[in-house]
Design a protein around this nucleic acid. Structure first.
Lengths: 340, 340
DNA sequence: AAAATTTATGCAAACGTTTGCATTTATGGT
DNA sequence: ACCATAAATGCAAACGTTTGCATAAATTTT
């Protein structure tokens, strides 16, 4: 529009009849420059539609103002990429990062290079790394941590790690969910999910503890292990009922998506929810309240989580140590569970 | 680990006893360098965990190998950020971009600066822009297009625009969906969605055309306008039934999320699906087949779409003009619609 | 009114690559 | 053996910022 050959700092300087250093400082609102000239130059820049070359300034300052967000998918069936919860976290991180002047470089564990520190940090692609999900193996994460690169992980904050983990109180969540079913009168409560997964295993702990506290059967056969996708959950419940009949009256699902799969398997068999079987999920994805019956669940506060994660990362940028932090969860009782 | 003070090209060169130019060329696999030395240097680089400073190379080459992906949210209630379909598109774009050596910088229309070309392209943050969703207003997009910046938009490819649009054949989709209901015996078919939205309005066209072709009532009152979220759809259906009774026996929903909301409103009133009312969605999100009843829908091929969009963008990088392109859709009949 | 201080601006080097051109080394032709 | 050509490497400039230090201008102090 205005000028075709890209306008540079030097160009602006010439236009204004000052030096590049003055323009640079003025645009960065450096008080070293007299206020009037600062404003004049800023106006000039706006007028000429000037925009700083970030590649140059990143090179000079050794700071990118970019954060790499890595979706830690568990395997190649791009299943979890469909989990609305994870993607909600990405969205909220984007908001928080932008608010703090950072941009979000999206990546995932399947595509990203082997050595994350090397690829993102040493190459000046990003200043820090946020990993979403600990998955089943944490070796790559630990490797990043060992390099000392700024890092925050979404996962279970209770697992002892040499890196900062932000996450919900999963054990408590599992406990509350189970207790809610118990109080609704359930006697045979199944845990449905993947107990090898860090976060899920904590939820399983809470589940077991609640059963003990209320002295209910804590049979091993009540733990149904399956991948954390709707489809896997659907199949697991269908198979189980086929094999052993309806030997349970409550399901603690490890995520809302898992609960959705289970619900479908039950509905297809005309098993009433919550009449015959109560079911409770985890996450509180947007869809939970729109299911029929509306899904009771344990809500994870992703907005808060995103804020905390960004905050922790910024701390590390300033040389401070980062701490793991627990985000409060909240039991949301809807229609898929009986409440006596 | 190996060395703490960052290793640079010059450092590597010194280690190898050659010049920086040789190392640079070797690492870029430039045949100007003898094959043996190339391999030797690449091995050395790997051994020393060397990684190129991208800020520097971007500055020098004026190429970032980054593409900005902008989620074009319609308003500030961050509603659409919850739409799994949009996020699926982001995921697929990430795959396609990575496969072609590009990285994905995520942004959204609410946070991003006003002038997208200026912010992303002129500043050397990215080489090109992909906008997901035309939304209700396309002024920002048109502005980008007018600057000549590499741009591809996901939306309705039929709307005549001065930029390349990749999208499904929405009119055909709307037609097929409606026809499917008609063939199932529906007589009073409602269109549920937002006809002001570019893509949705095309689907509405197809809907109208199908009604005409089969000479069914094409009453204006059968077009129920609502935001494209589950919640809005739920409320719209609930209100409509309250006000006018059940005056329809089929619903063409503008997206699967909208269909989900409508389904809930029906179920709550013990209206049988598809017994009393058939319902069909659009998108085929992962969850569609896991609803009860499994949702019939018009599938959009996001993987293919992502590939095409990236391809079109790469074309523009090479100076070629980009064309709008139509992605095939597919009717998926499940259990939420009668099939006579 | 000159010296001392404060305030505002400019100079020039540096960030780490890439690449046109010059130079050296190897290969081949007579 | 010598020259012409081809292959391999090196030199040095450039990309567009930022910033320590030096300088110039304005202000205050004596």
């Amino acid at each position: 529009m205005t000028n075709d050959n890209k306008l540079t700092l030097a160009g602006l300087a010439k236009l204004a009849g000052v030096s590049t250093s003055t323009v640079s400082r003025a645009l960065n609102d450096n008080p070293l420059i007299k206020k009037e000239t600062r404003e004049k130059l800023q106006a000039l820049a706006k007028e000429h539609n000037f925009s700083l070359n970030r590649a140059a300034s990143r090179l000079r300052t050794q700071k990118t103002n970019v954060v790499a967000v890595i979706l830690n998918l568990t395997d190649s069936t791009d299943q979890s990429i469909n989990d609305p919860f994870l993607l909600k976290v990405v969205g909220d991180l984007n908001q928080s990062l932008n608010k703090n002047g950072y941009e979000l470089l999206l990546s995932n564990s399947l595509m990203a290079n082997e050595d994350w520190t090397n690829y993102f940090i040493n190459s000046s692609r990003a200043d820090g790394i946020i990993v979403i999900g600990q998955g089943k193996s944490t070796e790559k994460i630990e490797q990043v941590a060992s390099t000392g690169a700024p890092l925050v992980v979404w996962g279970d904050p209770k697992v002892h790690a040499n890196y900062a983990v932000v996450g919900s109180n999963n054990e408590l969540g599992g406990y509350l969910a189970t207790e809610h079913l118990i109080k609704g009168g359930c006697k045979q409560i199944v845990f449905l999910g993947d107990p090898e997964h860090a976060e899920m295993s904590e939820r399983h702990k809470g589940y077991t503890k609640a059963l003990q506290d209320y002295s209910l059967t804590s049979n091993d056969m009540l733990t149904l292990s399956c991948d954390i996708t709707s489809k896997a959950a659907y199949e697991k419940i269908a198979d189980t009922i086929l094999a052993k009949g309806l030997h349970f009256d409550g399901i603690v699902a490890t995520s809302d998506m898992v609960a959705i799969g289970a619900m479908k398997a039950l509905k297809e068999r005309y098993i009433s929810i919550p009449g015959d079987v109560s079911i409770i999920g985890f996450d509180d994805i947007a869809m939970a309240e729109l299911l029929h019956p509306a899904l009771s669940t344990v809500k994870q506060d992703t907005k808060k989580a995103a804020q905390v994660m960004v905050e922790q990362l910024l701390n590390q940028f300033q040389g401070k140590a980062a701490n793991s932090e627990v985000i409060d969860i909240e039991l949301i009782a809807r229609k898929s569970t009986r409440s006596l």
